[in-house]
Simulated assay, not measured.
Amino acid sequence: MAPLVEGKHPGGFLVWEASRDYTRETITVAAGTLEPGTVLGRITASGAYAAHDPAAMDGTETAIAVLWGRADASAGEAPAVALIRGPAIVNRHDLVFAGAPVDAEITAAHAALLAIGILVR
């Protein structure tokens, strides 16, 4: 019998937040299929969100939010909910980073999230 594998759950990364009506908002995801807990950046030109990419030069190089639930924007922009401000605490082990960032890039993303009130523990 094949082992069962449980995927990520919406909000599974969240340890604590002050008020969901304050810390979360509906956003627009630019492209791709993203899992809950994906660290996001905002594309400067469009204002849409995409997976945080430290090597980018379009605004997504700065971590600015954490995706709440799965988002499927494979056919174009799609609405989603994200944790966009604190006070909030998230579990570092449940955050999802695109690609294979090095430790320094992850540390910088954690610092950027802390600047908006999202503490990574």
Rank of each mutant, 00 (worst) to 15 (best):
P79E: 00
V5K: 14
H9N: 14
A63R: 08
G11Q: 05
V29R: 10
A65T: 02
S19Y: 07
T60N: 05
D72G: 00
P54G: 09
W16H: 10
A50N: 11
R24S: 04
A63N: 03
G11H: 04
L40Q: 03
A82F: 03
R85H: 07
A31M: 07
A80N: 05
A56R: 06
Y22T: 11
A75N: 07
H52D: 04
N91T: 02
P36F: 15
A55R: 07
P36L: 15
E35F: 08
G86K: 01
M57K: 14
V29S: 07
V81E: 06
A80F: 06
A50L: 09
E61Y: 05
A78S: 09
G37M: 09
A75L: 11
S46T: 15
A65V: 04
H9S: 15
P36I: 12
A71S: 12
S46M: 06
A18P: 00
I89R: 12
D21G: 09
G32T: 04
E6C: 14
P36G: 15
E35L: 15
T23R: 09
L4G: 10
V15G: 13
N91W: 01
A31K: 12
A82T: 03
L67K: 01
T44M: 15
G37P: 00
G11A: 05
T38E: 03
T26Y: 06
G69A: 12
P79T: 00
